[in-house]
Simulated assay, not measured.
Amino acid sequence: MTDNTNTLCKDCYTPLNDHKATKCHECGSWQTKHRRLLDLNTVIVSLILSVISLLIATVPLIHDHVRDKKPELNLNILSAQSEKISIMVGNTGDAPASIKEVYIQFPDDEMRLAVGRNIWGQIIKQNDAVSLNLEGSKTLQLPVMVNKFQKAYDPTQIAQCKVSVIYKEFGNNVDQYKIQKFDCYKSSCPTVEGAKDTRYYD
């Protein structure tokens, strides 16, 4: 007696035309064990690749949110005259910074003068740069920057001064420093007896 019962597809349960068919003519799924296993492996590999792609896209974003963000100030002296010093302060870090204090340090670090008190407390945002004018003391003049294009000057009359910016990052009470040196005329540097390690304010 011949069995006329059709074999059903293992996926869509459609009767197969041939009980020995290796592939369903309706849904296209493989009927043999090895080919079905291969299809399953393909699905698993595709899923793994999708998960890896998702991780590659999201891990940097997660890391950017959880890592420590810090400011990084850069300082450039634009000009220095007896009444004010102009500087450019840029923040190339990934967090804002607050300027705490600014000082001019004179040759041999024997004296430092507090300047720019009008900008103390100013916030420099990340990826931002600002031009600031530092005004000096009412009683002491500021050092004058050497004009490098001036042909006639006595090198022995040149000294090296420094602008020192003390700043803080939010959530951290540790002072951070950015110092920029510049050449100035010795004759423009104030000399005060006993001025070492003394802060001069307006």
Rank of each mutant, 00 (worst) to 15 (best):
K162I: 03
Y167P: 01
I77A: 01
V115S: 00
K196L: 02
N133A: 14
P155Y: 05
T5M: 05
Q81W: 04
Q31L: 01
S82P: 04
P96N: 05
C9E: 00
E169N: 11
S82A: 15
N133S: 15
A152M: 13
R199C: 08
V43S: 12
E193G: 03
L55D: 07
I158N: 01
I104T: 05
F106K: 09
D64H: 09
N172Y: 06
T32C: 10
Y167V: 00
A114T: 13
E193M: 05
L38W: 07
H65T: 14
D39V: 03
R117H: 11
I87R: 00
Y177R: 11
L73T: 01
G194Y: 00
Y153A: 02
G194Q: 02
K162V: 03
E101L: 07
K186L: 13
E169D: 07
G28Y: 02
D3R: 10
E101I: 07
G93E: 00
R112N: 14
I158E: 00
L61P: 04
T191H: 12
Q126H: 11
G90V: 11
P71T: 03
G116L: 00
L134I: 02
T156A: 10
I124C: 02
I44H: 09
G90A: 15
S29W: 05
N173D: 14
I87E: 00
N4E: 11
Y201C: 04
V115A: 00
N147C: 06
S98P: 06
D3W: 06
N147H: 10
S50C: 11
P96H: 01
I62C: 10
A97H: 00
T139F: 11
I179P: 06
